Amino acid sequence: MPVLEVEDLAVSFRQYSTGLRQTELKVIHGLHLSIEPGEITAVFGASGSGKSLLAHAVLGILPGNATVTGEIRFDGVPLTRERQETLRGREIALVPQSVNYLDPLMRVGKQVEASVCGASRSFRLNSVLEVFKRYKLGPDTAGKFPFQLSGGMARRVLVSTATLSGARLIIADEPTPGLDAEALAEALRLFKQLAQEGCAVMLISHDIEAALQIADKVAVFYAGTTVEVAAAGDFSGDGSRLRHPYTRALWNALPQNKFAPIPGVQPHPNAMPPGCLFAPRCSLATGECAAARPAVREIRGGKVSCLHVT
């Protein structure tokens, strides 16, 4: 059974327009995703495609003006707000995008210790020292403040917090930006190790090349929809094993591939086209594509939202 299942997730935000009239801005239209125990699922997509909003929806930390429809299940059971509050920080943990999530006024040992539920103080302290040793952080790290850590050390502290929580689902939201090659390899190794221990890992990233080093599966988002879910091995060669036109274009736009730009831009939530959201930029688009949004289908061992894929 998947640890996490997301089906037809939609998220909209209430906003005020002229004359204090309320409007609904729909930013996620139909996201689909599942993650098995011990699996790393990388989530790719341009800024504004819904990657971080998905993470926040799973964690139950969207702002109060958000409306969520569709279904999110954890261990096969719907993830209600009450369950989210119970599981957050315990069964579901976030490794945030920025190391600024660490409290600048609290020593990092204290911050990591807070993730150990129950038990005695001595047990919690020993747990912190053990996890720091595991991630090659010296025992003196616990007494330091965040500003005294390097970027790589701070990220290892954040991963330590998720590890000690005992979470079965780790959501890593852009955990590798700005890291040098050595720190990047170390961060990827940490997530791979967590998966090998049975955790389900959602790795949200713009760095396709890095994420593919450890990912088992890839979900590609576009304008708040899931356009493709494919095995990581399908991202190879000329991209011919990929299914959706956007995924292939994304792959071929990388410098190590054809470095071919994708014409057009991702639509703004206020100006979504009818039918397939990628149709205005797609060379395969027909009138049928503009009539209705394509359903997600299973094709060649993956999932895709496109009428023309066979």
Rank of each mutant, 00 (worst) to 15 (best):
T163D: 14
A223S: 12
A57K: 07
Q97A: 13
T226R: 11
G152C: 02
V108Y: 03
V296L: 15
V43N: 12
Q193H: 02
P261L: 03
R73Y: 01
A162Q: 01
R155D: 10
P263G: 00
V6G: 08
A285S: 12
F74D: 05
G118W: 13
G45A: 12
E186K: 05
F123R: 12
R243I: 07
Y135P: 09
A187V: 11
H32A: 13
H244A: 02
K192F: 10
L125F: 09
E71P: 03
G143T: 06
V68E: 05
P78Y: 07
H268T: 07
S305I: 09
L102G: 04
L59F: 10
A285V: 10
L184Y: 02
F235S: 01
V296N: 05
T41F: 06
T247H: 04
Q111V: 10
L164P: 13
V304F: 03
I92G: 06
A219S: 14
Q196G: 15
G198P: 13
L54P: 14
L129G: 02
T286R: 06
L94K: 08
A223I: 08
G237L: 07
R73P: 01
M272H: 04
R300L: 05
Y16D: 07
V112A: 00
E39K: 05
Y222R: 07
S240R: 08
E228R: 05
G166F: 09
A172M: 07
V95N: 04
V296Y: 01
A162G: 04
L102Q: 07
S98C: 07
A232V: 01
I61R: 07
L190K: 03
S122W: 06
A271E: 14
S236F: 08
V99C: 13
P269L: 08
E186W: 11
T225W: 02
A231E: 01
T226C: 07
L9H: 01
M202S: 13
R189A: 15
L179I: 03
R121G: 05
F259Y: 12
E36I: 01
L129I: 07
S17Q: 15
P255W: 10
T80K: 10
V108M: 01
L184T: 11
R83A: 14
P294V: 01
H29Y: 09
T23A: 12
V95G: 10
A167K: 11
G151N: 01
L129A: 12
M202L: 15
Y135R: 00
P245F: 03
K51A: 13
V6M: 11
A167T: 09
A231N: 05
G138S: 11
S49G: 10
E36H: 11
G19F: 02
S122R: 09
V265E: 15
Y101L: 13
